[in-house]
Nucleic acid binder design. Sequence first.
DNA 1: GCCACAAGGTTCGCATATCGAACCCACTCG
DNA 2: CGAGTGGGTTCGATATGCGAACCTTGTGGC
Lengths: 146, 146
Amino acid sequence: MTTRLDDLPGRRCSIAGALDVVGDRWALLVVREVSLGAHRFSEILRGTGAPRERLAARLTALVDAGVLERREYSQNPPRSDYHLTKAGRDLLPVLQALMQWGDRYVADVPPVELRHRGHRIQASWVCDVCGERVGRDTERHATHES
Amino acid sequence: MTTRLDDLPGRRCSIAGALDVVGDRWALLVVREVSLGAHRFSEILRGTGAPRERLAARLTALVDAGVLERREYSQNPPRSDYHLTKAGRDLLPVLQALMQWGDRYVADVPPVELRHRGHRIQASWVCDVCGERVGRDTERHATHES
DNA sequence: GCCACAAGGTTCGCATATCGAACCCACTCG
DNA sequence: CGAGTGGGTTCGATATGCGAACCTTGTGGC
């Protein structure tokens, strides 16, 4: 689970660390599918469109990374399904942010709507400490330099 | 700029569309670097740790995708640097979300702090419409099915 | 008992992508 | 004039990704 940041090229950075875990072509789509209720191999396969072998490898890697949990729901024949762990659920903001960007810049018609309380979500990052929107006025303080 | 959602495998989805643009290994790291003030090829090269040829290809693709803008700041010798477009700046929430996740689940010591108003940012995704946090109580309404 | 079919993968051989290292070109500086 | 810098391209080896076929353990139909 601990991908060492130091093994990655470039600036030492949690973004790079996160991408090392979920930054490949299929990982976030897998998380999306599981979060939408697709728990079985074949459902995730259909939803993502990934090649079978890639999907098998990704599922294993995501389980190893602590993003997914594999549950055996039948022993004969052996059958498992996949669920999000807390770490996996905590990726939902990433998906939400990507979706919002995709809706705006790549899709003509947003294909899926996220709703709650009866309206379509349009969300922003808000700082928990001061309650203001997180925007461009943030400073960055590197604590290390590579 | 218009990556057609329909050309992608799997479920028709803006997340997949966004990932088709910025979902490769280096794209988001490039956006991170540019947002941190690295505008020149060599700075981005150093910050990301990408191979030169990959970086050149990515920069071109990101310019074509409308995420970056290339500005020639010298003609003799020809020199350009790269800046975020509005679409590029709108990716910052994605980076913020990834960073927060990485800080939590992969880094031991968060290497970079995002600060504003003198404190470290700890942000949540908040719905603009109703002001509530976006959490797990969201419903998803598919408008199409593939 | 026999055949077809399903789930959840694994194996195979080929095609593409990615890699680091080396090279290139147009300048500038000393 | 020779070394150095910025911004790349080219090259050959390796890694990764791919679709198609196959495998295994079972279930249901007849």
